[in-house]
Simulated scan of single mutants.
Amino acid sequence: MSTSASNTGKYSGDLVLFMAIAFVVSWALWGVAIAMGGPAVNPAATLPHLVGAFGPAIAALVIRIRRGRRGEPVPEHAVRSRFKTLGWVPVLMVLASATVLSGGLLAGVSGSAPMPSVDTAMAVLTAQSPVMFLAMMVISGPLAEEPGWRGTAYPRMRASMSRLQIGLVLGTIWAVWHLPLFFIAGTVQSQLGLATPSGVLFAVSSIPMAMLCCCAYERAGVVASVAVHFAVNLTMVLTNVQAPVTLALIMGIQAIVVAILLATGKDKAASGAPAATSDEPKVAENA
């Protein structure tokens, strides 16, 4: 039996269980939100809408407890967030935000979409408490998802797949997982509409976005992937990105950035780096 086949079998149970829990928890709660009319119609729908986003985090917790009870080691390709690598976090945040701003500026210069405006950003921030707004931007997406998609699924998939393959597969799964949000009134996705160019591009953009978060994870662990996820989401909301041309440009720019990061980053599979052990210093443990 090849090493690749052995690794696939080793983590296939974890991956199937993780995906099942993530989808069942999220889709069940989002189904409740849809049935209630969504936050825009019924404020009570905000709770199932918000909690549903934690499906991947809940699944990650289950997998970690399962691993602990079985006495299994942390996957070889799990990346811890260490103090010596956290310097990557602000750099990656700026880079992630720049992919959105660049797309918006290019679309604005070409006349294909409105130019990003400071007034638009200020209107979003002043529409509610800035502190609450930023807290929700961190909690509802990045913190709810990254411990699962990147912190748990990624290192197990990395045991038998290349970084590019994982980006494509995990990005596609991520896009499908988001689909119920298009039917919850009050979400960004529902405003775009699933059967529109913007809606389709938004869904497809999960692939380069997943790759970007994976590259961040490989450099500084879950803290970095959370930061990148937050930076992209925040910039898109503040600049009110909706035009198809803008979304397409952002995807293209992110794809170029990912290609550069993949070409310049250290391939941990090729490096033969040993699995992390429990006595190593860490900021956040995952997988």
Rank of each mutant, 00 (worst) to 15 (best):
R67C: 02
L61W: 06
A53H: 09
R69T: 12
L61Q: 05
P73M: 06
V74L: 00
P39N: 08
T46L: 15
E72R: 13
G37L: 08
G55T: 04
T46D: 14
T46V: 15
V51A: 09
G38K: 04
R70L: 10
G68L: 06
A45K: 14
R67Q: 10
L50T: 13
H77M: 00
R67K: 07
I63A: 06
I65G: 01
V41N: 13
E76W: 03
A57M: 07
R64H: 06
E72T: 06
A59D: 11
P39A: 05
R70G: 09
P39G: 13
F54N: 00
A60T: 04
P48D: 14
E76I: 01
V41Y: 11
G71A: 03
V41Q: 15
T46I: 14
G68M: 10
P43K: 08
E76H: 11
E72L: 07
M36N: 02
V79C: 01
R80E: 05
F54M: 01
A60M: 04
G38S: 12
L61H: 02
P39K: 06
P73R: 02
V51G: 04
V41G: 10
G52T: 13
R80F: 03
M36H: 15
R69N: 13
I58V: 12
I58H: 14
R64C: 08
P56H: 06
L47H: 06
A59Y: 10
A40Y: 02
P43Y: 02
A45L: 15
P75S: 06
P73D: 08
I63N: 02
I65Y: 02
A53I: 05
R66Q: 08
P48I: 10
